[in-house]
């Protein structure tokens, strides 16, 4: 049993864990951060994706003891970081996932968001191909990915201050509900 000093979502946390515990196990079973999901537990599914020093990596294949001194961001850290930066409500990317219905069961979503968030940070206006490649390590059994790609495109477009390109199938232009951080107009449902 070793004492570890981990930087999780901006907090310095001291936890004890044996050397053979993965970062995912420490996050879920020591720190109670169950947003990072335990799926295949062997690097296939991407449900455990967290950011380590800003890069999406797999918490199920990272030994916690080797993560000391590195900045770890989990899904629980996205909204607080957005609020600390002066934003309102959830992170705009989370909001876009919500508005696009980019999930069904939601199991892949924390990992998807952390992969997509890192993509938008290095490439603020990514092409559909870039999005596909950036999310290639995050498997989704429900959505067929289309709405996930649209959510990333929506968040990117809004961050650039332009209207998102509506999907070709939609007859009335922008099908998305307004952003969470904006007050709904009278009579508008959310």
């Amino acid at each position: 049993m070793a004492s570890l000093l981990l930087n999780v979502n901006g907090d310095q946390l001291e936890v004890t864990a044996p050397d053979h515990w993965t970062l995912l196990e420490v996050l879920r079973y020591r720190l109670g951060l169950t947003g990072s999901k335990q799926g295949c537990d062997k690097g296939d599914c991407g449900a455990c994706t967290v950011q380590i020093d800003g890069e999406p990596q797999l918490a199920c294949l990272a030994l916690a003891t080797l993560c000391e001194g590195r900045a770890i961001t989990t899904i629980e850290g996205l909204m607080p970081a957005h609020l600390r930066a002066g934003g309102k409500g959830p992170d705009p990317l989370q909001d876009a996932f919500d508005r696009c219905g980019a999930l069904q069961c939601g199991f892949c979503q924390p990992g998807m968001l952390l992969s997509a968030k890192a993509l938008l940070e290095r490439s603020p206006d990514p092409s559909r191909d870039e999005i596909r490649h950036a999310l290639a390590g995050n498997l989704c059994r429900c959505t067929g990915y289309t709405q996930i790609f649209q959510a990333v495109e929506l968040a990117a477009a809004e961050a650039q201050g332009r209207a998102p390109t509506p999907p070709a199938w939609h007859p009335d232009g922008n099908p998305w509900m307004p952003a969470c951080s904006k007050a709904p107009a009278k009579g508008e449902s959310r």
Binding site: G43, G46, E55, P56, Q57, L58, A62, A134, A136
Partner: peptide, 9 residues
């Protein structure tokens, strides 16, 4: 090789 997260690690 593998997927994006695995190539970073």
């Amino acid at each position: 090789v593998a997927g994006p997260q695995l190539r970073r690690m």
